[in-house]
Nucleic acid binder design. Structure first.
Lengths: 158, 158
DNA sequence: TATGATGGACAACTAAGTTGTCGAATACAG
DNA sequence: CTGTATTCGACAACTTAGTTGTCCATCATA
């Protein structure tokens, strides 16, 4: 009973499956994060924390890195500060600037995310098997520039 | 100068590239749609039209198919009607129900989308080459169920 | 025929984004 | 060293796409 050769994927199916695969990974991540005391973390928060980086950033810099307006970045910082993932301090050398830095809890969440993401990746790779290196090669060809992945208002809702 | 072997992809990179590839396809689609008289179409609208289907649907049915509340589905129908992609008519047999159906302009937009999506898919496949069948196989393994791809509030913003 | 379920509408709210405005602080040209 | 221009953060109003909750008219049924 040879299964019929799979039909080539339509453009719409390709797009939908790429989205579904992304959502599957991110949803699974946040289920596990919630189980480890980070039930208030949203997908946006992890990306924003990474964009803040070890040296901190101002709202304007963060907006540039995420590809959103400084106002939107400011609101994201509010959310991170509310949840204890980041803090905002005055810049001693420039009274206009406020430096946003990652708190210990923020670092903990980032480390946990990396660990969970790694396990998720391994589980997905096991399902793909030998084709995984080729899959990664193809995916890199399909989406060569990563920076632009962040400037996606609304991609992180819920 | 052999390029160094590409590092295996981290979980976060995998997720981001899946999102970036999806966004690339959908953004390109809407650029072309806009060039053909559908500048007011949003990604959500195409998916909603497909969910309405040839036989029409009520707001409740549409909400079920898209995985959102009937209120959200009703708002989406408002948007589709505003843009001339769908119409709402009374159900002759049940005064509570309003049947939403696709207008000729809606069908035209769907057909155009399929055509553009097909060309986009071919262009991306050309960049991937021989690995495309394997890529599709792997992607199907990564995201086996498509239905859940639609219930993504916020994925269609902008 | 009384009761309960269904479908749609309305209102108020959330989350993430946008533009526009503004004042305070800094940078810099003359 | 002073006047102008820029930068940064804050605030307000709006947009999109969603959510709950409430309510009424209509339909199905015990």
């Amino acid at each position: 009973m040879s299964s019929s050769p799979p039909a080539p994927m339509s453009g719409a199916e390709l797009a939908l499956r790429l989205l579904a695969a992304f959502r599957d990974l991110v949803d699974a991540l946040h289920v596990e994060l919630a189980e480890h005391g980070h039930s208030d973390a949203r997908p946006l928060h992890g990306f924003a924390l990474q964009a803040i980086g070890p040296d901190g950033a101002t709202a304007v810099e963060l907006g540039d890195r995420l590809g959103v307006s400084k106002q939107a970045a400011g609101k994201t910082v509010d959310a991170l500060v509310d949840r204890g993932y980041a803090r905002r301090d005055a810049d001693p050398g420039d009274a206009r600037r406020k430096i946003v830095t990652i708190t210990p809890r923020g670092h903990e969440m980032l480390a946990l995310s990396a660990e969970i993401f790694g396990r998720l990746r391994d589980a997905r790779a096991a399902g793909i098997g030998d084709d995984m290196p080729a899959f990664e090669r193809s995916l890199r060809a399909l989406a060569p520039d990563l920076g632009s992945g962040l400037d996606s208002p609304g991609w992180f809702a819920r």
